[in-house]
Design a protein around this nucleic acid. Structure first.
Lengths: 108, 108
DNA sequence: TCCATACTGAAGTTAAGGCTTCAGTATTAT
DNA sequence: ATAATACTGAAGCCTTAACTTCAGTATGGA
């Protein structure tokens, strides 16, 4: 099944949870199995699995199951999505400031 | 009262909510009163107020009350915080890939 | 002065989501 | 073949947080 279009909403929602942020942070340092992720987090494998679903769904993590081990990797696609969102807000804001400046220049 | 240090955790948490993202998006286009924010969102003033507290607390919005009107403005400080977090993860990931490459080169 | 506007704060409701347990399945090791 | 490992899925618990109502306060206009 092909992956649906990645949404900034979903990425922010995913990173809004501290445990998921910890997982991303961990995976940025290198790949890991589900068990390895679970251990330092102090939550069950099931809990980790649920977070991985969310993270995979928004392009922050990719996973691959080989044998009985699922290997999880950092995925930059999710980051790209929010980087785009952020620069969008920034440019709108700059634009708004410019417009205000123009108005002020026109005064008198 | 001075503002506490801004945390990436708080900014992501703030942007994890669709209504708050809508508020930020709106304010990036220019300042707005609380009432003006509430109207298109279809929630009460009180609801908006609560979101503004969160957004102000993490440096995504600044507000200023003049007379009976509170004017809300976009604030880029919050964005800077997460931009930093993002580039941190990216650089860790790049580093991890480099290390892997070195290991592979050493083989044989 | 009287009323409308613009917001604020405390308190309650409710739904979502983060986590668990438990009972599986599939894979690897002995 | 047996047992241990590594994970999965369904179901439920339970806290958090997004929202509301309602009863204010302060400001601005007629």
């Amino acid at each position: 099944m092909a992956r649906a279009k990645l949404k900034a909403d979903d990425v922010f929602n995913a990173l809004g949870d501290p445990t998921r942020r910890a997982i991303v942070h961990r995976l940025a340092r290198g790949p890991s199995s589900v068990s390895q992720l679970a251990q330092p987090l102090g939550i069950t494998l099931t809990g980790v699995r649920q977070h991985l679903d969310v993270l995979e769904g928004c392009g922050l993590v990719r996973t691959e199951k080989i044998g009985r081990v699922r290997t999880c990797r950092f995925d930059t696609r999710g980051l790209v999505v929010i980087e785009t969102w952020i620069s969008m807000q920034r440019s709108m804001w700059t634009q708004a400031l410019d417009n205000l400046g123009d108005l002020l220049d026109q005064e008198d």
